[in-house]
Design a protein around this nucleic acid. Structure first.
Lengths: 150, 150
DNA sequence: ATTTGTGCAAATCGTTTGCATCTGA
DNA sequence: TCAGATGCAAACGATTTGCACAAAT
């Protein structure tokens, strides 16, 4: 199937993702579409926005019958991040989360369960940000709304 | 010296802190004022608002001639946090920072240097926070403004 | 005297790295 | 062919834990 879809579309988007489309996307990012990268990419970008840890993704891949090592999962996540396909989310000093939604948005974090949820980008507005110190610029603003049982 | 000062005052405040005052504060929090806890407390609360890692604080204590083990520094930081004297700040997946300013405020984080700075509480306003999911309440909103060299 | 805290070193957890082997262009 | 990718296992850094000893009430 020489299905050539919109490979430039939003990574975490809703359009059905084909292996071909993903391969093109990887190639465009300067990454060889290896078996592992395609498999992980399909898991990540094949179904809406996702928040995964390296272990989550590794477990999924194994469950899906793909043999990938945990080290490769880490490598791949960081490469995807470098290519702008993923964003890393800083929640706490332990687990690193990767978000397939690279647009500007905030998160709910359920403390006890350790689950992450998107807050629609336009749901939150931040006013009154002070000037950054001289010689610095703001690279990004992280907003995490922490939730506990009521 | 039966010096009984305002031990209920703001922990990271500007008032000169005495060992006596701190001991009272610890006792009120249900923590025995041991030598180590008092020493660490004086370092933490004795001079304005601070952002420290466990290692920072341990190094300071050792430099100050107090013998405290790193494990005890960790224990103490968590106990202080539990007592509401400190707040833990989630920056990235590695080092944990503890902030002596427990009031609501945001932070600048200098990516490369790993330094943290307060942004005055009233400098930032967040609007449009969505309702938390049913059964949940917002415990706290973390805002981290990440800075890089311009 | 009893309870609570401390220190050390070993254990743990998530993550990274070195290196030999394999794979894709 | 041959740069680039993978897998394994060992290395790592931050944090935690188990347990014998010490200090506080």
């Amino acid at each position: 199937m020489s299905n050539h879809e919109e490979s430039g579309a939003v990574p975490g988007g809703m359009a059905p993702l084909t292996a071909d489309g993903l391969e093109t996307r990887l190639r465009d990012a300067g990454l060889r579409p290896t078996r592992q990268r395609v498999a992980l990419g399909m898991l990540l970008f094949g179904s809406g926005d996702r928040h995964v840890t390296a272990e989550d993704l590794h477990a999924e891949a194994v469950t899906a019958g793909e043999s990938v090592s945990l080290a490769t999962v880490y490598n791949t996540l960081h490469q995807f991040k470098g290519a702008g396909l993923l964003r890393e989310i800083a929640i706490n000093g332990q687990r690193a989360y990767f978000d397939t939604n690279t647009s500007n948005h905030s998160h709910f974090f359920v403390e006890k369960a350790g689950t992450l949820m998107d807050i629609p980008a336009d749901g939150i507005r931040i006013d009154g940000l002070p000037e950054p110190p001289p010689g610095m610029r703001i690279s990004h603003v992280d907003v995490v709304v922490r939730l506990v049982k009521a």
